[in-house]
Design a protein around this nucleic acid. Structure first.
Lengths: 178, 178
DNA sequence: CGAAATTATTTTAGGCCTAAAATAATTTGG
DNA sequence: CCAAATTATTTTAGGCCTAAAATAATTTCG
């Protein structure tokens, strides 16, 4: 059961109580998470390039559009992907040139550009998404279902913690501005 | 204790046994991990820019050099940071210009460029590293020591799984070449 | 109504990053 | 020895990404 026996792992990894003001564990955790993310991202980039001659940003953008039947605005895509508006504009330009995405001004508010996948885009995405899902499963293959669930849950708590810490600091900065 | 009561979370998240060939859980896990990494990375980039007028790649490169007393070659830094040699060359150019890093050809093998932090670079890094460690702790503040340890361990297993899957595919490709 | 403020997107300038080609130095094997 | 192969780094061309400024359209409110 791997019970965290005191005197073994814990002694070497978590003696926070003995080191007040020390936050090395959090740092090590972050570096390890970054390593995992980078390994996955790099591998997926390579495979997308080799098998589909495309890039991760393009794939990610198409994935967002694929989830929406009615199309999405530049701003919505930008928020979902956590990238700038200008970046969406640029990536969309490439997809437009390849006929994978359609862009048109909304009829009621002509500031807004609505993006949708073309039929070709939907077809291309479907093929890529299927392979992509398999690649991810391959990469996580050594984790069993329980570990996946556990990791998913811990990352959920991490996400909550991050959102709160980031919001708290943004509030502080806004206060400072006033 | 959050015991994973069947019928609640598990029913919605992990019915892999009922969906053969389905790998949605791994995909969701990856997307959540990516969200966490991106949130942290973006926040750290912003704080480094606002408080120290520097960038994450520069900070990361200085962090590597700081850990080495004798200096590191371009290739070693490139491997540790998981970026291309060319990228190291470019980032180092900026740090050289700012007097934070020193670069000199090794005496015994003049192909090799040895990088070290200057006194100014070490001092600047020390100040940033201290703040950086605090920021990371802040971001993970809502996780207790046990959750940190657990997450660290699960990510360790993930890392192993990733390395094996990536190596396996590289081997396959090498076979295919022969 | 119409000027000012707001909102959505694009443009611009600049840094990061990669793969592939080029350069430069060293090692190897005939 | 010396030509070929190898190794380390840099250069090049091009895509991604951001912040800030610019543009364009809509909304608000006096």
């Amino acid at each position: 059961m791997e019970t965290n026996a005191p005197g073994l792992l814990l002694d070497r990894e978590t003696k926070a109580s003995e080191r007040p003001g020390d936050h090395k564990d959090e740092l090590r955790l972050w570096l390890r998470m970054l390593t995992c993310s980078t390994l996955i991202e790099t591998e997926i980039r390579n495979r997308l390039r080799e098998e589909f001659k495309t890039t991760l940003p393009r794939f990610d953008l198409m994935a967002q559009l694929d989830k929406s039947s009615t199309g999405m605005t530049v701003g919505e895509v930008s928020q979902r992907l956590m990238v700038s508006n200008g970046n969406v504009t640029a990536v969309v330009a490439g997809l437009l040139a390849d006929g994978l995405v359609d862009k048109r001004a909304a009829t009621q508010d002509r500031r807004v550009q609505v993006l949708t996948l073309t039929a070709q885009g939907r077809k291309a995405f479907k093929a890529m998404a299927e392979r992509h899902e398999g690649w991810i499963a391959e990469l996580f293959a050594e984790l069993d279902q329980q570990q996946i669930t556990q990791l998913f849950r811990l990352l959920g708590q991490t996400k909550t913690s991050l959102h709160r810490a980031i919001a708290a600091r943004a509030d502080g900065a806004a206060q400072g501005d006033a």
